[in-house]
């Protein structure tokens, strides 16, 4: 295995061709895992829709949609990696998944910026539990704000709104937080990224 020291030596702002390809490939893998594993999504969605709880299908799985961003940030430790990872991921999704079109790019950008803000608040020094915790919080708040406008959440009654927020926080906290932490631990233990 090639060592990747070149990417840690250069400033954290610059991306090499290899970094871009790596982030894009990770994004494609996340998409493939998502589509290949959750056949039950439509059943879940249909079941919840029938009892008037349709939006929960999205909120339960949102953390999984967003995983590419924090994963890219944790693995490359670069400024803006979360946004780039999420944007590339949503570009892939737009082209392959198809039906949501360019709206995917906008939500991808919002999700990436939302997660990235957490790492930025920690000064791009905490690619650990603290960074992930902050990115979970900022990610939830920012995507929820967008849902208030875009998906009309502002028109729900308060109780329903709070429930949606809590479900989204748990989903993002688990998939884009805890799961990313576990994955990163495996990566660090294996030493494949050759970081100090």
């Amino acid at each position: 295995m090639m060592n990747r020291t070149s990417s840690t030596k250069s400033t954290s702002l610059s991306y090499s061709l290899r970094d871009v390809a790596f982030i894009a490939l990770t994004g494609i893998f996340c998409g493939a895992i998502f589509f290949g594993t959750t056949v039950s999504y439509n059943f879940l969605s249909a079941g919840l829709a029938a009892i008037g709880l349709g939006p929960f299908a999205n909120d339960i799985l949102l953390g999984l949609w967003m995983i590419a961003g924090p994963l890219a940030a944790m693995l490359t430790r670069k400024v803006g990696a979360s946004t780039l990872g999420e944007l590339l991921g949503s570009f892939v999704e737009m082209v392959l998944g198809g039906q949501w079109g360019a709206a995917t790019l906008i939500s991808g950008l919002i999700q990436g910026v939302g997660n990235g803000l957490g790492f930025a608040m920690a000064g791009y020094k905490h690619f650990d539990k603290l960074g992930l915790l902050l990115s979970t919080i900022t990610g939830t708040i920012i995507t929820f704000g967008w849902s208030m406008i875009n998906e009309g959440y502002a028109k729900y009654n308060l109780g329903f709104l709070i429930l949606l927020f809590v479900v989204r926080l748990i989903s993002i906290g688990f998939f884009s937080g805890v799961l990313v932490y576990w994955i990163n631990k495996l990566v660090e233990k294996s030493g494949i990224l050759n970081r100090d």
Partner: peptide, 22 residues
């Protein structure tokens, strides 16, 4: 979909392919 192993393996493959591609 919640197993870290499947993502870890994906990262291994992505790393190799991105090296080769570049």
């Amino acid at each position: 979909v919640w197993s870290p192993e499947i993502f870890f393996k994906s990262i291994l493959v992505s790393l190799r392919w991105s090296d080769n591609l570049a």
